[in-house]
C-alpha cells in the first residue's frame, strides 16, 4: 500500500514537468497563441525578479549565518532541554526544531549528523527525518517571496509562520511517539 503510493507519486513527479510543458505550450498552439514570442515576453521578468530578491535574501541569510556560527543554538538547546523532555521530545532533536525554519542546509546537516550518531531507524533518527519533512525553511521562503514584491511590512506573516512551524514539530513528535514510541 505504502509502496504503491510511493511509486505513483514518484511517477507523477517525474512526468509532471515534461507533461506540463507539453500541455501548456500545446494548448497555446491550439488557441493560436504566438507561443515563442509570448514565452520570451514572459521570461524577461525572470532576471529582474531574481535580482530584486537579492537584498532581502542577503539580510536574512547573514543574520541566520551569524546566529548559526555563534554557537547560540547549543546554548538554546541546553536551556530548553528540560522543557522538551516533558513532552517526550529527545533533546538531541531540539537543534533540528530550531534550525528547520532558519536554514535548509543547516537542518539537513543536523539530520544527517543525528542519523550517523543514533542510526536512521532509531527513534531519534525517524523523528529527525520526520521533522525535516514536516516543514519548510520559513525564513528563506519569507525572504524570497516577500522580497520579490518588495514587501517590507510583513504584518502577521512571521507569527503565523512560526506557529505553523511549532505545530509541525509538535505534530512530528506526536505521530512518531504514537507509531514508533519509546
Amino acid at each position: 500500500m505504502g509502496d504503491l503510493f510511493r511509486t505513483i507519486i514518484n511517477a507523477i513527479s517525474i512526468m509532471a514537468i515534461p507533461l506540463l510543458l507539453f500541455v501548456f505550450l500545446g494548448w497555446g498552439i491550439i488557441k493560436k497563441v504566438r507561443v515563442y514570442e509570448v514565452f520570451v515576453e514572459g521570461a524577461k521578468d525572470g532576471f529582474s525578479t531574481a535580482v530584486r530578491i537579492i537584498p532581502y535574501l542577503v539580510a536574512m541569510l547573514c543574520a541566520i549565518g551569524i546566529f548559526r556560527a555563534s554557537g547560540a543554538l547549543e546554548l538554546l538547546t541546553s536551556v530548553l532541554a528540560p522543557v522538551t523532555n516533558l513532552i517526550g521530545m529527545p533533546s538531541e532533536t531540539l537543534p533540528m526544531a530550531f534550525m528547520r525554519p532558519l536554514s535548509g542546509s543547516g537542518s539537513l546537516g543536523i539530520m544527517t549528523e543525528l542519523m550517523k550518531v543514533h542510526g536512521p531507524d532509531s527513534f531519534i533518527g525517524v523523528l529527525a527525518s520526520t521533522m525535516y519533512g514536516s516543514s519548510e525553511t520559513t525564513f528563506y521562503v519569507l525572504a524570497i517571496y516577500f522580497g520579490s514584491v518588495q514587501v517590507k511590512n510583513t504584518r502577521h506573516a512571521v507569527p503565523a509562520g512560526l506557529i505553523a512551524d511549532v505545530f509541525g514539530m509538535l505534530g512530528a513528535v506526536l505521530i512518531c511517539r504514537i507509531l514508533f514510541g519509546v
Binding site: F5, M131, G133, S134, A172
Partner: peptide
Amino acid sequence: IIIGTSIFGAACA
C-alpha cells in the same frame, strides 16, 4: 517509513 509521518507533521503545520 517517514512518508506518512511527514505528511501528518506538514498537515499539522
